[in-house]
């Protein structure tokens, strides 16, 4: 089976972020998407702590302890960027003002349910942070994740078995094998990477996959 590495999945997500979008990138793999958004697009990044117009990482020696992103990394502010308090930052999310959020996931169900904050095996209570607010708030929710778990178990399911982050919230899923849209009829293939066939990808997916719509 043809598998993209995580950088190439992030590169593929970046292709689907339109010029002029307001975007929130989750902690971890989603943060990498910014590295691949083409320079001819202007994308304004939101950070949940209270920033619009997040710029690149701060250069060594230029770090400001107060100027960090959601992952607590030192960042910079682009010309045109601004700051606001946390309640306003989440009003922005809940109020549907962000065009796209990109999150990682443990599981996505064919009805668009997302599970990305807790498993059934947690030893400690998990942290939820802003994940539930982002899930229900952004106009489009992209999920970036491996198609299967490390133990080769499916992550695209009929119904999530882990605690939900949000109900019917996912728009599009980008995995190492394929891109899939959540539709009222279930997962529909948008793109199969490399030589992957629908049958091969279906074999590692619990939910039923619908073939790509006729162009």
């Amino acid at each position: 089976m043809y598998r993209l590495d995580s950088a190439d999945i992030a590169r593929r997500v970046a292709q689907d972020i339109p010029d002029g979008s307001y975007v929130n990138l989750g902690i971890g793999m989603p943060t990498k998407v910014a590295n691949f958004v083409s320079g001819d697009k202007q994308v304004i990044y939101h950070s949940e702590n209270g920033i619009l117009g997040v710029g690149p990482a701060a250069a060594p020696g230029e770090e400001n302890i107060n100027l960090i992103n959601a992952g607590k990394q030192y960042v910079t502010l682009l010309a045109g960027g601004c700051y606001f308090d946390n309640a306003e930052s989440f009003a922005m999310m809940r109020g549907g003002h962000l065009d796209i959020a990109v999150l990682g996931a443990f599981q996505v169900a064919e009805n668009g349910d997302l599970a990305n904050w807790a498993t059934n095996e947690d030893k400690f209570p998990p942290a939820v942070g802003g994940a539930m607010d982002l899930a229900i708030g952004a106009k489009k929710l992209f999920v970036i994740m491996r198609h299967t778990t490390a133990a080769n178990m499916p992550k695209l399911l009929r119904r999530c078995t882990y605690p939900l982050t949000g109900q019917a919230v996912v728009s599009r899923v980008f995995t190492d094998l394929a891109v899939l849209d959540v539709t009222p009829a279930g997962f529909r293939v948008v793109e199969l990477f490399g030589s992957n066939t629908l049958e091969e990808v279906q074999a590692v997916t619990e939910a039923r996959l619908l073939p790509a719509a006729e162009a």
Binding site: N86, A87, S89, M93, P125, G129, G130, A131, M132
Partner: peptide
């Protein structure tokens, strides 16, 4: 983690935007 595991601290977990709005 140590205090929670030992049952020495209670946790109320609140989604971040709900936390800031409840405070507001």
């Amino acid at each position: 983690e140590k205090r929670f595991e030992a049952g020495e601290v209670e946790l109320e977990l609140v989604p971040q935007g709900t936390l800031s709005e409840r405070i507001r």
